[in-house]
Amino acid sequence: MLGLNNVEVIYDGVILVLKGVSLNVRDGGITTLLGANGAGKTTTLKAVSGLLRSERGDVTKGSIEFSGERIDRLPPHAVVRRGIVQVFEGRRVFEHLTTEENLIAGAHIQKDRQRVAGGIERVYEYFPRLKERRSVQSGYLSGGEQQMLVIGRALMANPHVMLLDEPSLGLAPMLVEEIFGIVQQLNRQEKLTVLLVEQNAALALTIAEHGYVMENGRIVLDGSADALRENPDIKEFYLGLTEVGARRSYRDVKHYKRRKRWLS
């Protein structure tokens, strides 16, 4: 199990971004982390993957543990070796490498050539479209293909846990559903544990079993996906649903902040 205990993250020695975040990611499950822009979701993922230090950030308090071992002091490549791999938001492929070279780069920690080849085949099974585009320079792939490629590339490291950052960003709804379907499939067939960061709360809560809501560097709410879906605040602020059929005046909208009852 991956767990964060009261983690505080400071950037550049002065900017406090995470103010004591605790969360648990159950083995073999999909856990989602919801929140608005700037809430600290991506920072949370980077704290786990060890990439904070490349951005002059640091875990200053608390601890991050994976399978009983503290990992918050490890360099990124050591975290990957322990089976946790992060997929960045914004489809960050290695633009000048071909699709297949991207996958090979993703298998860097795998020493055995045979297993690299096997890994590539596995990725092509989940994402047949990547096979057709195997020798295309990945910078020229479509957005959806690039998102598939970054997920496939992360799979090449044979991870136990995938930290998936906003896979829906800037993609057509149909593609988003396809990709979420594949994530769910990976979770079931490969026993892949997923920590999913999303802005698209409606979709995230349909595939996740447990969710956390972040605001301003704190976890403000957590619960099972079903409970969160029924929570009136989540409904209003994240799912965009209001009391059925009721017309709402601008004054209500304007005062929405007052209704975030977890902040009071």
Binding site: S49, E55, P76, H77, V80, R92, H108
Partner: peptide, 16 residues
């Protein structure tokens, strides 16, 4: 080449 393309992503793939 992956390192040259994007250092941070390369780190995230376990490349030292």
């Amino acid at each position: 080449r992956a390192v040259a393309d994007n250092q941070q992503v390369a780190m995230a793939m376990g490349i030292d």
